[in-house]
Design a protein around this nucleic acid. Structure first.
Length: 654
DNA sequence: GGCATAGGTC
């Protein structure tokens, strides 16, 4: 690309830049080659005083195949206004852009122009229109064109086949597939993808096994088909077996793991991809960023961001949203805000990611302000946006505000509350100590049988030491989810918190009699680009000895400050000293100690925990931030805790 | 030059 820029500079020096043929060639290369740069092509295009039809077609074609198809339509309109007539090479790309944008009205207008130009017997154009109408869900219009076309080819058949699939008309597609005199690999791929979309994975596999020849796309389709059904192992097996892989295959398998809640595996595959010298594209990057977000892996996320800036990967609004989400979930709100502020246009995803990100990081008020700005900007919030808004209310303890938004959601925006919204309301009421209100709200809601929501109530009982309600809710929960260890743990914690050790032990025994084990707490910390995971009492780390020495030092210094360990999270009826030990070796404390010995002075210690932070770890983190003069940041299952100078951003309310 | 596969907020 830089060579092209030099060539262009040379042309300008030699007064050749008025030679529209030379510049057109340059534009053609920039717009269509994978080494080109559409943005630069557009800049060159705007410098030509009177572009000809060929040059208009080139730039329109470049955008139609890009991630900015809207530009294609804008340029087409400009072309018409400048009285340059479109030809047979203009229309297919404009149609493609319309299909890409699912722009039915615009597409119909272009169709009208094609009829006017008398070009309606061109099989390329007709196929494009069939595809366009099918993409817009107008299958009958597509079929009419198909039936009326005198020069049908295999692509026409495949396009209408695909149209039936997209509209969910499996039976029609099947009949058409059987009627076909000739089928190519695309016809088979369309059918396989159709079955996979409907969730009929067995039928999809049957066709995949039956088809006479497969190409790399056939394999890619099956890989994501398995992923869609949650069959990650089958997906990976196929990926390993396939004879050749392209960037779509790699993106497909990375996305499968990222969306399947296995971000560590997704990142490992991304590493493998790079080792295989495969160049990622924007879709790969989005899934990798989403994996970093899930893990809170800031160093890796930042590296990906740098890579995107350096490479030729086009940054569209989806990558930008993924970046905002990644930075926010890694506790770098400022970076997230910086990207958000620079966005040229903000769709509901971008607003939602930013609102949710602010709420997650304890900036509830800012999140609500931003929601107001979003409404002013005329962007319609969706159900996910309201999850962020209600979470913001919850973290701030704004009960009345939460009610207001909960009602607004239905009355103003017509969104039916999902279980997550009921969850936020139960949470905000529970945290505020309005336990009875929380219970009656939950009982009267459609989510009244949801164990997770009752678990929220149980958590609130723990916070507010309400043993009586805790017992009732605990009984109910054990009936709903007899095998969920978390319920037993929480219930016995409630007893333990008020010193009812006998009851705590009974619950613990009940849990053991069912052979249930506590979901282990795990804390992760990223040091010099590597993520280290710690479990309670874990001794596997290569610097385990130093870590435990550091913990002893921490315990000693804390005691000098008069700190007494809060052993209420420990259930066992063991000696006090042992209880202290069990608490002292919680995963988050191990991770913090490791951070203290391995990170440079002044570098904040950032820990990601899979469960909620326990009360004692919270206190200890506050004290560590004071005595070691070090910022400690813990992202737990719900929220970020920023510890500084002996205080926490959550104001001890979580 | 056209038909099939992979992406963001919960």
């Amino acid at each position: 690309m830089s060579q092209l820029v030099q060539i262009h500079a040379q042309m300008i020096r030699n007064h050749l830049s008025q030679d529209s043929f030379g510049v057109s060639k340059l534009i053609e290369f920039c717009a269509l080659s994978e080494y080109g740069n559409l943005h630069y092509a557009h800049k060159l295009f705007d410098q030509i005083p009177e572009p000809n039809t060929f040059t208009w077609n080139t730039i329109i074609r470049g955008y139609a195949n890009s991630i900015f198809p809207r530009q294609s339509l804008c340029l087409f309109i400009r072309m018409l206004k400048s009285s340059i007539y479109p030809n047979l090479f203009t229309f297919p790309f404009v149609i493609k852009a319309c299909a890409h944008l699912v722009a039915f009205e615009e597409g119909r207008q272009v169709h009208g122009m094609i009829l006017k130009a008398g070009a309606d017997n061109d099989v390329f154009l007709i196929n494009g229109l069939i595809h366009l109408y099918a993409s817009c869900g107008k299958i009958e219009a597509a079929r009419k064109l198909f039936d009326g076309s005198c020069k049908r080819d295999l692509v026409s058949w495949n396009s209408i086949l695909c149209g039936y699939m997209n509209c969910g008309l499996m039976e029609m597609a099947k009949r058409l597939f059987e009627e076909m005199m000739e089928r190519d690999v695309v016809s088979w791929n369309v059918m396989i993808n159709g079955y996979a979309k409907l969730g009929d994975i067995d039928k999809a596999r049957e066709l995949f096994n039956m088809m006479p020849t497969r190409n790399v796309e056939s394999w890619n389709i099956m890989i994501s088909a398995y992923a869609k059904c949650g069959l990650l192992e089958s997906s990976k097996k196929l990926f390993d077996e396939m004879p050749e892989r392209n960037v779509v295959s790699w993106s497909g398998i990375i996305t499968a793991y990222a969306q399947g809640g296995q971000p560590t595996e997704a990142l490992a595959l991304y590493d493998e991809m790079r080792k295989a010298k495969m160049k990622p594209n924007c879709r790969t990057i989005v899934s990798v960023l989403s994996s970093c977000a899930q893990l809170g892996a800031f160093d890796q996320g930042k590296d990906i961001h740098m890579y995107v800036d350096q490479s030729k990967i086009k940054v569209d609004s989806i990558i930008e949203t993924a970046l905002i989400d990644m930075y926010a979930k890694c506790g770098r709100v400022k970076n997230a805000v910086r990207i958000f502020d620079k966005l040229e246009s903000r769709d509901v995803f971008a607003w939602t990611a930013m609102i949710g990100g602010l709420a997650l990081n304890g900036h509830g008020k800012k999140a609500l302000e931003l929601f107001g700005e979003m409404e002013d900007a005329g962007v319609k919030p969706n159900a996910v946006t309201f999850v962020g808004v209600l979470c913001a209310c919850s973290h701030c303890g704004f009960v009345e505000m939460a009610w207001h938004y909960f009602n607004t959601m239905t009355t103003v925006y017509g969104i039916n509350p999902h279980v997550e919204h009921y969850g936020c309301m139960v949470d905000v009421l529970g945290r505020a100590g309005r336990l009875e209100e929380a219970v009656s709200f939950l009982r009267s809601s459609p989510a009244k049988d949801d164990a997770i929501l009752w678990g929220t109530v149980l958590g609130a009982c723990w916070i507010h030491r309400d043993v009586k309600l805790g017992e009732t809710v605990g009984d109910l929960l054990i009936k709903l989810e007899p095998n969920d260890s978390g319920i037993y743990v929480l219930l016995s914690n409630i007893y333990a918190r008020v010193g009812r050790w006998d009851d705590a032990r009974k619950v613990r025994l009940l849990m053991e009699s069912k052979s249930l084990q506590k979901n282990p707490g795990c804390s992760a910390i990223e040091v010099h680009g590597t993520v280290y995971e710690f479990y309670v009492g874990g001794k596997l780390h290569c610097r385990a000895e130093e870590i435990y020495l550091k913990l002893d030092e921490i315990a000693f210094r804390l005691r000098l400050l008069g700190y007494v360990p809060n052993t209420s999270p420990v259930l066992f009826d063991i000696e006090d000293e042992e209880k202290e030990h069990a608490v002292l070796h919680h995963s988050e404390k191990l991770a913090i100690a490791f951070g203290l010995i391995s990170l440079d002075d002044g570098v904040p210690i950032r820990v990601v925990k899979n469960l909620r932070v326990c009360c004692d770890c919270h206190t200890v983190a506050k004290l560590i931030s004071k005595i070691y003069n070090r910022q400690v940041i813990i992202r737990d299952r719900n929220v970020f805790h920023y510890f500084r100078d002996g205080l926490c951003s959550c104001k001890d309310f979580w």
